[in-house]
Nucleic acid binder design. Structure first.
Lengths: 344, 344
DNA sequence: TTGTACGCGTTATCAT
DNA sequence: ATGATAACGCGTACAA
């Protein structure tokens, strides 16, 4: 079955292909009645323009791509929601693409730029392991969202980041526990060698301990389990179990993400440990779920909406050439709920 | 800046474009050393083939698209994970596309078919409101996943469905509560006019009541709140609150999705109602979260993995022409956890 | 084994 | 306001 093309429509209408093209793309130079007649034929025959051909020919588009690594992350969902609104308001069309864990987002971006003539790109959950010079091949504006700021070196000015100040906020969260009288604070976190957010949150924890004269107990630092997805409820569950079975004493548990905290809740409960009477628990992120467990989870809320807006604004400015790269660090908000007890 | 094309590579290498094309596409008819030399130049210049041009030229691809409405749904995530594996194993490349709430998935599908020369399509969370004859325009194999079976009329054989038997399982869940001695069973569900899953689950509830000689109390049927996302924790929370403030008596609460159940937990707790001592609660879906709240939520687990496999198998058979449309109804599994109490 | 030349379906340019 | 035609970048007969 021969696919129907613009030529067919032109022939049927007795006009030139250019005219049909004009009708499709809402060009001004066309007589209203001609347009209507063409539209009618298009509907009748169910003609659908071939995007490959369009993109091939077009020199530019109004498309902004969002490349998300880990679409499961509820944080990203909120960000995407806001971005969707902003992009629409500014007449961009949005292309949302999932990035697989083993996939190379930069390679994907490079392909898409050519294929879709992108105006800009937003990376969510960007990975930093790319070979030197690879990222520089992206010649169009792009913004890195919520990826963990790189330690304060020169890297920051080469790209645009929008992220919460993970190091500082993690420090704050840890210090909060210390101020509540806790000294034996266990942490569920990424390993030391982790390259992004996880590492920063761990560093904040370590720094807070150091600044308060508390010796680090390595046995209280529990790395993610590789038996299940990182930053998931099961991961919080199994890591807390292994913490408990180690027999190490602790009065507070810092889960570096709320959903892990929820997993920790279960492990603690099953061990007959009460929250916060026996052990205080805190999370990170400000996930919705934290308000739906008992006791409500004390957490550090990331200002997701503002960050999403900042991501868009930054990209918008880059596209318009009205600003250079910026590294926007956001402050979080410590939400005191019910999962922490002050001890003497 | 002129983008680098296949011609440039050919010129640089001193070969014809055909040879370069062969190198890119791993064609057999090419001398290994030629290929290597070409590859080297490609890497050096960072040449990336333009997919629009490729798709335009190609008559077919090995791509299967998954069109998801509501990527947030954890159920879909599990399904996608399995599909990803299956598709890879059979050398399909997978294209995952989010469908916006106001977007028309059939129109999108039609575009993609032309643009990417799709081999098949999988719809997750399909909406049924499409104008007559619209769906028939899709001339390539497609499968509808987890959409709620249409009431047993002829529709079923026109497309391929894979879904849990919502009506029956909802019936079973309700009957389970009845057998436990409950007669005043509140339900958080879609409205009567809802067209898919929600309606079926409500119907199952109604039928179970009727079959057991229990009069329906309309004040115990709480429709989704439109103030927040359907099938979400907040929705379960606010609907349960309105149920409570109605003053209507009930001994069991049936949330037609687990995350709504979790929301209900909170509302009940805040009202000083104990689960399951004062009120029994059940959910639907078998979401991971149900195991992380206290008490663990009794639910009806959808056999997600098997369903995902069935979706793939069905599509695969359709593509190979080895079967016609099928309507696969899966059974769920009632998981008795801790949130239901037997009453006299 | 390799190269030439054409066409995929569309839009931009330039006529008319 | 409309039409003819040349690209866009690639794959592939077909020829060599």
């Amino acid at each position: 079955m021969p696919e129907i093309t613009i030529k067919d429509i032109a022939r049927i209408c007795g006009v030139g292909v250019t005219t049909v093209s004009r009708a499709i793309n809402n060009h001004p130079d066309i007589k209203p009645e001609t347009r209507q007649q063409i539209q009618k034929v298009i509907d009748q025959y169910g003609y659908i323009p071939n995007n490959s051909a369009r993109n091939l020919k077009r020199t530019e588009s109004n498309t902004v791509a969002i490349l998300v690594r880990g679409i499961t992350n509820p944080l990203f969902n909120s960000i995407i929601k806001v971005l969707n609104i902003e992009l629409k308001r500014h007449k961009f069309s949005m292309l949302l693409q999932q990035v697989d864990y083993e996939e190379d987002e930069v390679a994907l971006a490079l392909e898409l730029i050519k294929e879709k003539r992108l105006k800009g790109i937003i990376f969510l959950g960007f990975n930093y392991y790319h070979p030197e010079g690879e990222i520089e091949k992206i010649k169009i504006p792009f913004v890195l969202g919520t990826v963990g700021a790189i330690d304060g070196d020169e890297d920051c000015s080469r790209y645009s980041h929008v992220t919460v100040d993970d190091l500082r906020e993690s420090y704050r969260m840890t210090e909060y526990l210390i101020k509540k009288g806790h000294r034996d604070i266990a942490i569920l976190s990424a390993e030391e060698k982790d390259s992004s957010v996880g590492k920063l949150r761990l560093d904040g924890y370590l720094k807070a301990l150091a600044d308060n004269g508390i010796a680090v107990n390595p046995r209280l630092i529990i790395p993610f389990s590789d038996t299940c997805e990182h930053y998931s409820m099961p991961n919080g569950y199994v890591t807390t179990q292994s913490l408990l079975s180690s027999g190490e004493k602790f009065t507070a548990l810092y889960a570096t993400s709320d959903i892990m905290g929820v997993g920790a809740y279960r492990a603690l409960r099953e061990a007959g440990i009460r929250i916060p009477e026996d052990v205080s628990v805190v999370g990170f992120d400000g996930a919705e779920m934290g308000d739906y467990v008992l006791p409500k989870l004390t957490t550090l809320k990331q200002p997701v909406e503002e960050m999403a807006k900042a991501i868009f604004d930054q990209l918008y400015d880059l596209i318009n050439g009205t600003c250079g790269n910026k590294n926007l660090l956001f402050c979080g908000k410590l939400l005191e709920k019910e999962s922490v007890r002050e001890i003497s």
